[in-house]
Amino acid sequence: MPDGSTLPVRCTVNGREYHWRLAPGTTLLEALRAAQVRGPKLVCGTGDCCACGVILDGRSVNACCTLAGKADGATVLTAEGLLEAGRLHPVQAAFAETGAAQCGFCTPGFVIRAYALLQEDPDPDEAAVRAALGGNICRCTGYVKPVEAVLEAARRMRSAPAPGPGAP
């Protein structure tokens, strides 16, 4: 057994600074959840479902197959971090209002993916939304409402642009 915590990692998660000492093989997902950042979920552990999606230095990635060491000096954003002063981000609001969250376990990953998409493309068509969500597995909704939610969020953000955390 490797002796636990030898790897220092300093990073900013949802605007808060962390200094971790981790086992060297720790994944970013394990580090976040150990730090009580519980939005990202462990579901498949193999990168196949995106329920652990986070934004690492501006790019959405799967935290389950990202080494925590890669977050050293980096900025991490998770679904919790999209809340501003307790107010839902338009992506979150759209997911809640369209019924895009059923059991909700995949939802933080969808929200992060949708947020990343809309940063890159504020006016995606439905095909672009599907392509962007193509790796996010949901077992409850059949994807109709998540796709609708992203299109709705895009509309809202275009009419009332809010830069959102992590944006330049």
Partner: peptide
């Protein structure tokens, strides 16, 4: 190659 999150990494 995989999904957008995979391709970002």
């Amino acid at each position: 190659c995989g999904s957008p999150n995979i391709r970002n990494m």
